[in-house]
Write a protein that binds this DNA or RNA. Structure first.
Lengths: 129, 129
DNA sequence: TTCTGTGCAAATCTTTTGCATGGCA
DNA sequence: TGCCATGCAAAAGATTTGCACAGAA
């Protein structure tokens, strides 16, 4: 995935196999926890270490390449993208990205200009509906 | 605090000193982490154990008497109250309760009726502004 | 009196760290 | 080649559990 290499180059992080694998995993799953990432990458890359996942998630967060999503269960991570809201399924726990409506954003900006906003909606996801 | 005793009675949780102390602490601070609660209660109640705080926060959450607030740092808790949003200070880390505007609520309800919603705004709190 | 809750200590997870070695630029 | 990143193992931190005893109802 050439795009990830560039992303890392631009952030002065070396494009190691491990980092690319983590980003691929997040791209594939959308949202994943530290040990979901670890267990999955270990299949194709048995020598990878948990500590490497922790260290890389930390540096990728610092560079704002990945973001943390809180769901009151196991913390998950996603590749940072356009602002969006999260739908957290009250049945299966899945996280879905949903639109962060511009009307809502504007309403908040009135009182808190240039603020980062996190909106989570707890309801049924598209599979459980 | 008589009100807390009733709250506990109604949830079939015994109104122990420890539970009342935890609820008082949360009422006083607004938002506190497990060990902030522990350190503070220990002053006036030296025999209290960390495990008791954990167990009680778990049962109080289960009964929806307290809620968890995620701030991407140390998880904090608050006494469950009217729906509201959180302002999380990007300078000092403080959490403030702010209004969850009805217009925003309505906008979300159109698409996700009867959903629980969490909105966090990262900006400067009233003290750091 | 009964049964839930507490406190302690141990067990379990989770996350971080130090350091020698490996590998990208 | 020069550094940053990796992997391992150990350390540190956070959370949970089991059990005997205490205390609310």
């Amino acid at each position: 995935m050439q795009a990830f290499k560039e992303l890392l180059d631009n952030s002065s992080l070396k494009a190691t196999h491990q980092r690319i694998a983590i980003l691929n995993e997040l791209a594939k799953k959308g949202h994943a926890s530290i040990d979901e990432i670890y267990e999955s990458i270990k299949q194709s890359f048995p020598s990878i270490s948990l500590a490497t996942i922790y260290k890389n998630i930390a540096s990728l967060k610092e560079k704002n390449i990945v973001s943390e999503v809180c769901n009151h269960q196991k913390t998950k991570f996603e590749i940072t993208k356009e602002p969006h809201a999260h739908l957290i399924c009250t049945k299966c726990g899945a996280i879905e990205d949903i639109e962060f409506k511009n009307s809502i954003n504007k309403e908040i900006e009135k009182d808190y200009p240039n603020s980062k906003k996190e909106l989570s909606i707890y309801s049924l996801c598209s599979k459980c509906i």
